[in-house]
Amino acid sequence: MPFNLIMDPRWVIVVGLASIVYGILSPVVVSRKLLFLAGTLPHSALLSALLAIITLNLLGCPFEICSIAFSLALVSLVSLLLSKGVKSDEATAIFVSISVSFTVIALYYILTAFPMETSVWAYIIGDPLLVTWEDVYFMVAVSIIIFFFIVPFLREHILIGVDRDFVKLSGIKVSLYDAMMVASLAIATVGLLRAVGFVVEHVMVLLPGITASSLAKSGRNAVLLGLLLSLAGGMIGLILSVATGLAPSGVIGIVMLVFYVISLMRR
């Protein structure tokens, strides 16, 4: 087994950014009870990335813009289902069915139509070790957008999840914050997909918040702990993966799971 700890700064930057973004989003997802939506988003992110590869090859549309546009459109579909009164479980089932079916079609089309030009593996299993500086710049831009949408309004987002009626009565435009939250999730999941991968994205968006909320005694501590756990999980996972030669996103996922199991034992 190779044992090598030489780090490219790009690896540290993308894993750090992904950890921070998910560390911020995850506690908010938990407080707002959006676990079902967050669970569907990696599916839409993968489909969006695949559709963006197709439009890039066929129409020359920039991948970054197209992938975010597709992701926002797909998430809007879930929001539309929910606004029409479809239950969250049913909306999730319908959305996952649609996105998985189209993902297989898109994947098959890409592998047969442009086999030499495109590698889709990074989007599925995630590989922060293969990112280019262009990828890094894109992820920095995505992270800045998420910071802008979420960080100044953390209190509002958390309180909407706890007592939506009270927040409305306090004069806050709750629907605007809903849109900000859903857009942030859509942008983050597709923007960071290459670093984290479709499979582990489920873990990154859910586990830091779940673990933190089971340990913390206040909303403020839950947010800080979620961020800390996500960052620690990302960095420890990256170091272990480089040291052992194992897939980084998989190791990060296992570290997050270990944190969660430890939190279970502390309850």
């Binding site: 009870k33 958390i158 999840g161 909303g219 839950a222």
Partner: peptide, 8 residues
């Protein structure tokens, strides 16, 4: 279910 405290 989210841990929000009295003062918050």
């Amino acid at each position: 279910s989210f841990p929000i405290n009295v003062k918050e």
